[in-house]
Design a protein around this nucleic acid. Structure first.
Length: 888
RNA sequence: GCGGGGUUAGCUCAGCGGUAGAGCAUCUCGUUUACACCGAGGGGGUCGGGGGUUCGAAUCCCUCACCCCGCACCA
C-alpha cells in the first residue's frame, strides 16, 4: 500500500494541536510559505502531463464579491486536485481593465473632487485610471490570497499589459485583413450617459409601466386624420413618414398622400410597408422615425426615407427638433411635446402601458437607438466553427442544459459592435489620412500608404473590453509569440465561470481561440450558478443581504467558506447564509478535533513501521480502509465530473459519520489500552494515521489551510500536503467481507440503542445481548468482537448462540437474531405504542412485498436480481415480524 | 412568442425506472477524558395537479398550473 510517509523534518514541530481551532493563527503563514516555495509556479516542462486554466479576470473596479469567491474556490479545488494528482499545473491569474465600468468609477471618483475628465484631458485621465488600477489589483490579489487560491502570481496578467495589447492589435489587424472587421454607418445602441455605443448584449431590458399616447396626424387637403400610437412622443419631431399596411382597406386610398406633422408642421408621406406594419395591431398606422428606432431605421432604408436626427449623443434634442426643443433633455422634451399636442388638440387617448425598455446595464440609462459610424466584427464566420466545436464534443459544457442556450444564441448572433467612444481601453489601430484613407496595421504608419499624405491620425475609439477578454486563454500565455508557456499550457483544460458571461466571454473565447490558434481554448466549461441569500433572493446592496467573503474568512476562516461553497455547487444557484456557513465551520472544527485525538495516540516510530499488510489487520481496520477507498474513488470521480457538491458531500459523510462516529469510537478501547495486546494497538495506530493522512489529502483541495496545518504536525510530515500525491482508489483495499460484517455490527448496535430508547432505559442500564445466526463463521466474528458490542451498545455481556430467556426483546437485524435481556422495568403505554408501530410498519412492508411477489407479471418480467431481492426481503421481514411479535 | 430550468420532509437541496434520501432546523435522552462547533435516538413527505406507458414511475411520455432565467417582440 502506498502511504503518506515522507521524510521527517529535522526540527520536528510540537506533536500536538492547540485545543482550539484558530484559523487566523496559521492561514496567512501557510499561504506565504506555499508561495515562497514556488508551489504555485510550474515550469514550462512539456514532458510532464499538464493541466492549465485561466482565471476569469475580475474587473479592476473594486472588491471581490461572493460570486468571485465561488468561482475562484472551485477553480482552486480543481487546480489543487490536479496538482496533487501529478499534473504540471498552471493557474493564470489576472485582472480585466473593464473599459466602461472602470472609466465610470474613476470619473465618479474624480467628480467628487470637482474634477471632470474633460478638465484633465485624455492622457492625464488615463494616467489616473492606471493609478486606480494598480491599487485595486493589489486588493484583488490580497483577497484571492486570503481564500487560499493557488494561482501563479509570477504569471499574473492584465488585459492592458503590453503583451496582451499586442495580441489585441494583432487580432484586430488580422480580422480586418480577412474582411471580418469593418467600419460602417449603422443603427447602434447608444448610451447617452456614457456617450458611447454598446453592443446588443450589453443592453438589458427592464419591464416598465409607462403610457401609450395616441396622436392624430391630419391628412393633407382632407378632413381625415391618421392616428398613430407611441410610447415616445418626443421622437415624432423626427418622423419622416407614416406607414400603413398595403392590404389594409382602411387606409389603402391614402397611400402616396401626405400628412402634416403636428407641432413641426412638416409634410411627410404616407407609405405602405408590409413588414413594419401589422394591420391587426392598434390603429394599423405607424409613425416612422428612421433615426431613432431600429425597425423604423430598416423601414427607412427600404423606402428611402430621410433620417432626421432629433436627439443628440448627449440625450438632448438637436436643432433639427426645432428651436423650442433644441437643447432640452429627451424626457423633458417628451413632456413639452405632449403639452403642445394637447394644446393643438392632436393628442388623443392616453392609456397605461407596460413594456420593456432597453437600458445600459452599467448605468441604468435608457438606450437611445442612434445611427452612427462604428467598427463591427462580422460574426457569422466565427460563430459557425464555434457551434461545431460544442456540437462535436471538443468542448463540453456542464451543466449540459446550457448547450441549448449556447446554440440558440450562436445561431441567431448579430454582428458585434466593438468600438467604444471611451478613453480607457485598447485604442483601435486604425489611422486616417487627411484624404480619408484608412490604414489598419501592426505598426503606426508615418504617412498614408495609399496616397502618402500626412499626418496620420489614429482612431480615437477604443475596443470593447470583451474583445481583449476573448483572447485571454492564449494572450496570457504570450501568444502570438510561440512562447514556452504557450506551447506547454495552451490550450487550457477547464474553464470555470458564471453562466452570466456565457455570451459575453465564453462564446467569444471559443470563436477567437478557434480562429487564431486553430484549437478550442479549453475542452471543459463549468458554469456555476448565482450565489443567492438563504431565501433564494439575489444579493444586492439595497436589500442589505450581501455577504462579503472577507468578512466570512475573518469570522470562520477560509476553509469553512470554501467548503460551504463547494458542497452547494452543483451548477445551479446557491443559497448561502451565515447559518449555513456556521454549519460547515463545525465540520472544520470536527476535523481539527479528530486530528487532535489521533495525535494523542500516534507515535513517531509509526511512520517507520513500513507498509501495512492487509492480512495482518483486524476486520475493523480492513473495514475503515475499505470505506476510505470507496470514498477515494467517489471523490475522484465526482471531481472529474465537476460535481463539487458530491465530492464535498462524500468527504463530509465519510469523515464525520464513518471515521469519527464509528471508527474512532471503535478503536478507542484498543488505543486506550482497555482491550487487545500491544501489537494490536500498534496496528490500530498505524491505520489511524494512514486514514487520517489520506483523509487530509482528500480534503486538501477543499480546505487547504486546516489540512496543511494538521498534516505538517502529523508525525512531522514534510514538506507540504499540497505537493503530496492525491489518493487514488486501490482495489486491494476493497473488502466486501469486512464491510458486510461491520455493517451488521453497526446495525446491531443501532438496534440495541433503539431498544434502549424504546424501553426508556438510560445508558447506565446495562444488560445482556444474545446473538444468533445461521453461519458459524459469522457468529465467530461477534464472539471475537464482543467487546465492541459491549462498549458501544453498553452491555454487560454478549452471548453468541444459545437461547435467550423468556421476556427478552427480540429483533432481526441483517439476518441475525438478537435478543436483549432486560432488567425489570415498568413499560409505559408510549413505549408499547412504539413497539406496536414497529410491528405495523413491518406488516405494511411485508404485505407490499408479498403482493409484488404474488404478481406473476412481476416475477416473469422483472430482472432476476430484483425478484431475488424481493424474496430475500420477504424472508427477512417474516422472520423479523415473528420476533417483534414476541415483544408485545 | 421561442428556448432552458424549477416545483421532493419546516428550510435548502440531492436522487431521475426497482423498498422515499442528505444537510440544517425540530423533539427526547446523554457533562462516555478529541470535539456541546459534541454523542445517541425519534418525529416529519399520497415526490405541484391530472392523464398515459410499464410487472413496477419521484424517476419516461402527454397535459395543466405556478415560479425562475435567457432570447426575441413591444406602434
Amino acid at each position: 500500500m502506498s502511504g503518506g510517509f515522507y521524510n521527517r523534518r529535522p526540527d520536528a514541530m510540537k506533536h500536538e494541536l492547540d485545543k482550539r481551532y484558530d484559523p487566523k493563527s496559521f492561514e496567512q503563514r501557510l499561504y506565504e510559505k506555499w508561495e515562497k516555495e514556488g508551489y504555485f509556479t510550474p515550469e514550462a516542462d512539456r514532458k510532464r502531463p499538464k493541466f492549465s486554466l485561466v482565471i476569469p479576470p475580475p474587473n479592476v473596479t473594486g472588491r471581490l464579491h461572493i460570486g468571485h469567491a465561488l468561482v475562484n474556490t472551485l477553480q482552486d479545488i480543481v487546480v489543487r486536485w490536479k496538482r496533487m494528482s501529478g499534473f504540471n499545473t498552471l493557474w493564470v491569474p489576472g485582472t480585466d481593465h473593464a473599459g466602461i465600468a472602470t472609466q465610470m468609477i474613476v470619473e465618479r471618483h474624480l467628480l467628487k473632487q470637482g474634477i471632470s475628465r474633460f478638465d484633465l484631458g485624455r492622457e492625464k485621465f488615463v494616467e489616473k485610471i492606471w493609478e486606480w488600477k494598480e491599487q485595486h489589483r493589489t486588493e484583488i490579489k490580497d483577497q484571492l490570497t486570503r481564500l487560499g487560491c493557488s494561482a501563479d502570481w509570477t504569471r499574473e496578467r492584465f488585459t492592458l499589459d503590453e503583451g496582451l495589447s499586442r495580441a489585441v492589435r494583432y487580432v484586430f489587424v488580422k480580422l480586418h485583413e480577412d474582411g471580418l472587421i469593418y467600419r460602417d454607418l449603422a443603427m447602434v445602441n447608444w448610451c447617452p450617459h456614457c456617450r458611447t455605443a454598446i453592443s446588443d448584449i450589453e443592453v438589458e431590458f427592464r419591464e416598465r409601466d409607462s403610457k401609450l399616447y395616441h396622436i392624430d396626424y391630419p391628412v393633407e387637403g382632407s378632413e381625415r386624420r391618421l392616428t398613430v400610437a407611441t410610447t415616445r412622443p418626443e421622437t415624432m419631431l423626427g418622423d419622416t413618414a407614416v406607414a400603413v399596411h398595403p392590404e389594409d382597406g382602411r387606409h389603402r386610398d391614402l397611400i402616396g398622400q401626405f400628412v402634416i406633422l403636428p407641432i413641426a408642421g412638416r409634410r411627410i408621406p404616407i407609405i405602405a410597408d408590409p413588414i413594419l406594419v401589422d394591420p391587426e395591431f392598434g390603429t394599423g398606422v405607424v409613425k416612422v422615425t428612421p433615426a431613432h428606432d431600429r425597425n423604423d431605421y430598416e423601414a427607412g432604408l427600404r423606402n428611402e426615407l430621410p433620417q432626421m436626427q432629433v436627439i443628440g449623443e448627449d440625450g438632448r434634442m438637436t436643432a433639427a427638433a426645432g428651436a423650442e426643443f433644441a437643447g432640452r433633455d429627451r424626457f423633458e422634451a417628451r413632456e413639452l411635446v405632449l403639452a403642445r399636442l394637447e394644446e393643438s388638440g392632436a393628442l388623443g387617448e392616453t392609456k397605461p402601458y407596460s413594456h420593456s425598455v432597453g437600458v445600459h446595464g452599467k448605468c441604468d440609462t435608457d438606450i437611445e437607438p442612434m445611427v452612427s459610424r462604428q467598427w463591427f466584427v462580422r460574426i457569422e464566420p466565427l460563430a459557425r466553427p464555434a457551434i461545431e466545436a460544442v456540437r462535436n464534443g471538443s468542448i463540453q459544457i456542464t451543466p449540459q442544459s446550457w448547450e441549448a442556450t449556447y446554440y440558440n444564441w450562436m445561431e441567431n448572433i448579430h454582428d458585434w459592435t466593438i468600438s467604444r467612444q471611451l478613453w480607457w481601453g485598447h485604442r483601435i489601430p486604425a489611422f486616417y489620412c487627411p484624404d480619408g484613407h484608412i490604414t489598419v496595421s501592426m505598426d503606426d504608419p508615418a504617412r498614408c500608404p495609399e496616397c502618402g499624405a500626412e499626418p496620420m491620425r489614429q482612431e480615437t475609439d477604443v475596443l470593447d473590453t470583451w474583445f481583449s477578454s476573448a483572447l485571454w486563454p492564449f494572450s496570457t500565455m504570450g501568444w502570438p509569440e510561440e512562447t514556452p508557456d504557450y506551447r506547454t499550457f495552451y490550450p487550457t483544460d477547464t474553464l470555470i465561470t458564471g453562466f452570466d458571461i456565457l455570451f459575453f466571454w465564453v462564446a467569444r473565447m471559443i470563436m477567437m481561440g478557434l480562429r487564431f490558434t486553430g484549437k478550442a481554448p479549453f475542452s471543459q466549461v463549468f458554469l456555476n450558478g448565482l450565489v443567492r441569500d438563504e431565501q433564494g433572493q439575489k444579493m444586492s446592496k439595497t436589500k442589505g443581504n450581501v455577504i462579503d467573503p472577507l468578512d466570512v474568512v475573518e469570522e470562520v476562516g477560509a476553509d469553512a467558506l470554501r467548503f460551504t461553497l463547494a458542497i452547494n455547487a452543483s451548477g445551479r444557484d446557491i443559497p448561502l447564509g451565515r447559518s449555513r456557513i456556521q454549519g460547515y465551520s463545525a465540520f472544520v472544527n470536527k476535523i481539527w478535533n479528530a486530528a487532535r485525538f489521533a495525535m494523542m495516540h500516534i507515535d513517531v516510530e509509526l511512520k517507520d513501521a513500513g507498509p501495512i499488510h492487509r492480512d495482518e489487520l483486524r476486520t475493523v481496520e480492513r473495514w475503515i480502509l475499505s470505506r476510505l477507498n470507496d470514498t477515494t474513488r467517489n471523490v475522484n470521480r465526482s471531481l472529474s465530473n465537476h460535481r463539487f457538491d458530491e465530492a464535498a458531500g462524500t468527504l463530509y459523510h465519510f469523515f464525520w459519520h464513518e471515521f469519527c462516529d464509528w471508527y474512532i469510537e471503535m478503536v478507542k478501547p484498543v488505543l486506550l489500552g482497555r482491550h487487545g495486546a500491544e501489537a494490536e494497538q500498534r496496528k490500530a495506530r498505524r491505520v489511524l494515521l494512514e486514514v487520517l493522512d489520506r483523509s487530509l489529502r482528500l480534503l486538501h483541495p477543499f480546505m487547504p489551510f486546516v489540512t496543511e496545518e494538521i498534516w505538517l504536525r502529523l508525525e512531522g510530515l514534510e514538506p507540504s500536503i499540497m505537493i503530496s500525491p492525491y489518493p487514488i482508489a486501490e482495489d486491494v483495499l476493497e473488502d466486501p467481507d469486512a464491510e458486510r460484517m461491520m455493517s451488521a455490527m453497526k446495525a446491531i448496535i443501532t438496534a440495541v440503542r433503539n431498544v434502549r430508547a424504546e424501553r426508556g432505559l438510560t445508558p447506565k442500564d446495562r444488560f445482556r445481548l444474545h446473538v444468533r445466526g445461521a453461519d458459524p463463521r459469522e457468529l465467530n466474528f461477534f464472539s471475537a468482537y464482543s467487546y465492541l458490542l459491549i462498549e458501544l451498545a453498553r452491555l454487560t455481556e454478549v452471548v453468541v448462540g444459545g437461547q435467550a430467556p423468556a421476556g427478552s426483546h427480540h429483533d432481526v437485524v441483517e439476518g441475525f437474531h438478537i435478543a436483549v435481556e432486560f432488567p425489570e422495568k415498568v413499560v409505559t403505554p408510549e413505549q408499547l405504542e412504539r413497539v406496536r408501530r414497529d410491528i405495523d410498519k413491518t406488516v405494511a412492508e411485508l404485505d407490499s412485498v408479498t403482493a409484488r411477489l404474488a404478481n406473476e407479471q412481476f416475477v416473469s418480467n422483472a430482472p432476476p436480481a430484483v425478484v431475488q431481492g424481493a424474496q430475500a426481503r420477504r424472508a427477512e421481514l417474516e422472520a423479523r415480524l415473528e420476533k417483534l411479535r414476541q415483544n408485545q
